[in-house]
């Protein structure tokens, strides 16, 4: 575990870094695995699509043309148009942006909570630890999608509410893992030494322990993002997530339901987009996990 940070390329003070060439070799190994390479390609193209969408020459994804409804693919509309005459291809590409932004925001929110809770709980212990882990135990056993559904039901539909809802329930599993790692690190000789030399708690947490949880966080995040994308799309599909005219894959799938038989591609395309995004992140996550300490694999389970 103590090697984790080096392996993802974070330089730690006071501890000798592993030689450069070896690290590079590991990254090469990562890419030689065809699955991981595919995952990386999928994720990178998705990120690119999401990034450049607003500046691309694509049609406006919200531009309605009621005289051009449900058109088949043509040079003008590469993947045809939807029930409002909007360009399907443009909506898919912009959908990547909405989906990735929502997933990223959810991840940042839940990771922030998880790291804070995990670090403090693991480092200080005592009754706050007991209390926090109680809450974690409780929430962990809740199906997160259902809890998010209840929250979204209370706050009202909307992408922001959904990501708040998902983020608010997603952190618990990670908090437990980060706490576990913190507990382990706290007992390490170098932490004891730092403490003996008079370093403050704050300094020990930030300088010594925090860098060691970076690796696990990266792995957890990449393994999780697929689930989060599926969850957000699922809530949007149920009508609780993204609202019109926002192009979002789950909502697009839901909008296309009346045309299931007459224009099945309108369901298949966003379905495929969700599938490829989740697949990409899962493959990449697997690769990253294999690259890192196997102990994370056990903890992440």
């Amino acid at each position: 575990m103590t090697m984790t940070a080096e392996r993802v390329g974070v330089r730690l003070p006071r501890r000798p870094a592993i030689a450069e060439p070896r690290r590079r070799g590991r990254w090469h190994a990562l890419l030689r695995e065809p699955g991981t390479a595919l995952g990386l390609i999928l994720v990178v193209s998705l990120l690119l699509a999401g990034l450049v969408a607003p500046w691309s020459p694509l049609a406006d994804p919200t531009e309605i043309n009621l005289r051009e409804r449900l058109r088949s693919p043509s040079p003008e509309h590469l993947l045809g148009t939807d029930h409002m005459g909007r360009d399907t291809f443009s909506r898919l590409v912009h959908g990547a942006r909405a989906t990735l932004l929502a997933a990223a925001a959810t991840l940042v929110l839940s990771m922030t909570i998880a790291v804070t809770v995990g670090l403090l709980s693991g480092y200080y212990g005592g009754w706050p630890d007991t209390a926090l882990m109680w809450v974690v135990d409780l929430l962990l056993a809740f199906p997160s999608l259902i809890l998010a559904l209840a929250v979204a039901g209370a706050l009202g539909p909307g992408l922001l509410n959904v990501l708040l809802a998902v983020g608010a329930v997603w952190w618990v599993g990670h908090a437990r893992i980060i706490r576990g790692i913190t507990l382990g690190e706290r007992e390490m000789a170098y932490v004891t030494a730092a403490r003996a030399s008079g370093a403050s708690d704050r300094r020990i947490i930030l300088r010594h322990i925090a860098p060691n949880i970076l690796g696990p966080i990266v792995v957890l995040a990449s393994l999780d993002i697929g689930w989060i994308i599926l969850g957000i799309a699922g809530l949007s599909f149920l009508g609780l997530g993204a609202q019109p005219p926002t192009p979002e894959w789950g909502a697009m799938l839901s909008d296309a339901r009346p045309h299931l038989q007459t224009a099945p591609h309108l369901i298949l395309l966003p379905g495929a987009a969700i599938f490829l995004a989740v697949l990409g992140f899962n493959l990449l996550g697997d690769g990253l996990r294999d690259l890192l300490d196997p102990r994370i694999r056990r903890l992440a389970r």
Partner: peptide, 22 residues
């Protein structure tokens, strides 16, 4: 297993209904 864990169940559900029911 990879495909199964990434496929959205709702899209699959529609496929099943169209094929086996309709």
């Amino acid at each position: 297993a990879l495909v199964g864990s990434a496929a959205p169940s709702y899209a699959l559900a529609f496929g099943l209904i169209i094929l086996f029911a309709v």
